[in-house]
């Protein structure tokens, strides 16, 4: 099986993508192929990118506070398209919202300060589990 392909996505109107770029770089340095969507993507757009790119995982970077609205829409869109692609979220997410996102199917939430090694490890584990399917 080939390299792990991760789509790093910026959902919604939030245009600050420094975090997304930094995380892309670390995932790349961990030997993954990282496809970046660019800023201001809708859940439908991200779903289509993941479809085109045969993504193993989608990493959503979000700082705007709209995660509770947008991330479940992305997951619903993936289901509608019959795409079994795990979603993780990174960014400013209050503790109270983490359980909500997880209940909607988000596999992991990384808040500021999460060590890079942990993110890489988690991504690897989720993809391996899925590929072993």
């Amino acid at each position: 099986m080939g390299k792990i392909r991760v789509v790093v996505a910026k959902l919604g109107l939030d245009g600050h993508d420094r975090g997304a770029r930094v995380i892309s770089r670390f995932l790349r340095d961990a030997g993954m192929e990282v496809i970046y969507t660019g800023i201001r993507q809708s859940p439908e757009d991200v779903c289509r990118v993941a479809l085109h790119e045969d993504a193993d995982l989608i990493g959503v970077s979000i700082l705007s506070g709209a995660h509770n609205a947008l991330v479940p829409r992305l997951i619903a869109e993936l289901e509608r398209s019959a795409l079994d692609i795990p979603v993780v979220v990174g960014g400013i997410v209050p503790d109270d919202d983490i359980d909500f996102l997880r209940s909607k199917g988000v596999r992991a939430v990384f808040t500021p300060g999460t060590p890079v090694e942990e993110i890489v490890k988690t991504v690897n584990a989720i993809v391996e589990e899925k590929r072993a399917g």
């Binding site: 390299k3 770089r25 995932l27 790349r28 961990a30 030997g31 970046y36 969507t37 660019g38």
Partner: peptide, 14 residues
């Protein structure tokens, strides 16, 4: 060095 890649071309074709 790492075998990884950052693929950013589609940003321009979004």
């Amino acid at each position: 060095l790492t075998g990884g890649a950052f693929l950013g071309d589609r940003v321009r074709m979004a």
